[in-house]
């Protein structure tokens, strides 16, 4: 069985930049994994993600999804098979919630009944009553509800791979904790591979079946949360783990 995602020696340099944004990266991810990518600002997380749906093209190396080299695939078709959610959510303000969710099915020319049923199914799954929310516009939703719709939209055509770039970055911590739980439940119920970018260490360790820690375009460590905490690969990773412990101790004081 082929890997869901495989990076072979992938490098990306932006024009006018001296440093590689993503530097000779190798890794594999299996179907059904929830991978969180953790790293400080500018370390190349977004770049890595956008190469998977070919919003960026790597300069060297290969990216292989389910055994197929993506450089030989039609980018438009590829993208319709991958779910993509960003921090700004990107709901289309001139379309109703229903039309937003129906976007990829419509691009794929699904039949109307099938699309409508799918929209209602996803709204229900996102905890939004279809009769009430289907015909609303994004501006009539709270930030948390918008992000739920953003997730529902990305899941619409049942993609095998989901790319999530700090989807909860702009959401208050209470709603965020709830959305994290919902996302975990969602992921458990389906055999999809999630790639979830964050720079919140707790979020990364709470959600990820494996955590990828990046710095300056490199992968420092890619392992289960337990292994990373027990055996940090280098000084950077241990200081990261230490900083999380520090925070923990801060809250302990008030118990």
């Amino acid at each position: 069985m082929a890997h869901a995602i495989e990076f072979q020696n992938v490098t990306k340099t932006f024009q006018g930049s001296l440093r590689n944004a993503v530097d000779h990266i190798n890794f594999t991810a299996e179907e059904g994994e929830f991978i969180t990518i953790l790293g400080s600002s500018g370390c190349g997380k977004t770049t890595l993600l956008k190469m998977i749906n070919r919003l960026y093209e790597p300069d060297t190396g290969k990216i292989i999804l389910f055994g197929e080299d993506i450089s030989s695939m039609n980018p438009v078709k590829l993208r319709r098979r991958i779910g993509y959610v960003i921090q700004q959510i990107g709901l289309f303000p001139h379309m109703t919630v229903g039309s937003n969710i129906a976007m990829v099915p419509n691009l794929l020319k699904w039949e109307k009944e099938k699309t409508d049923a799918r929209v209602d199914q996803l709204l229900t799954m996102a905890g939004l009553a279809p009769e009430e929310y289907r015909n609303r516009y994004p501006a009539q939703l709270s930030g948390g509800q918008q992000q739920r719709v953003g997730l529902a939209r990305a899941l619409a055509a049942d993609p095998k791979i989901m790319l999530l770039d700090e989807p909860f970055g702009a959401i208050d911590s209470i709603t965020r904790a709830r959305l994290q739980e919902e996302l975990l439940t969602l992921h458990r119920g389906m055999k999809k591979t999630f790639l979830f970018v964050t720079h919140d260490i707790e979020e990364a360790f709470k959600l990820g079946t494996r955590v990828m820690i990046m710095n300056e375009g490199h992968i420092l460590q890619f392992d289960t949360p337990e292994q990373i905490i027990l055996h940090p690969a280098d000084g950077f990773v241990s200081s990261l783990v230490e900083s999380a412990r520090e925070k923990e101790r801060f809250w302990e004081k008030f118990k």
Partner: peptide, 27 residues
């Protein structure tokens, strides 16, 4: 039109033409 909307549109698999017709012109 905000760049992130164009990026989302492209990232969802709209062709260049569809991005113009369904996102840029309506907005």
């Amino acid at each position: 039109v905000p760049p992130f909307l164009l990026e989302t549109a492209g990232g969802m698999g709209m062709t260049g033409r569809q991005v113009w017709m369904r996102v840029r012109f309506p907005l």
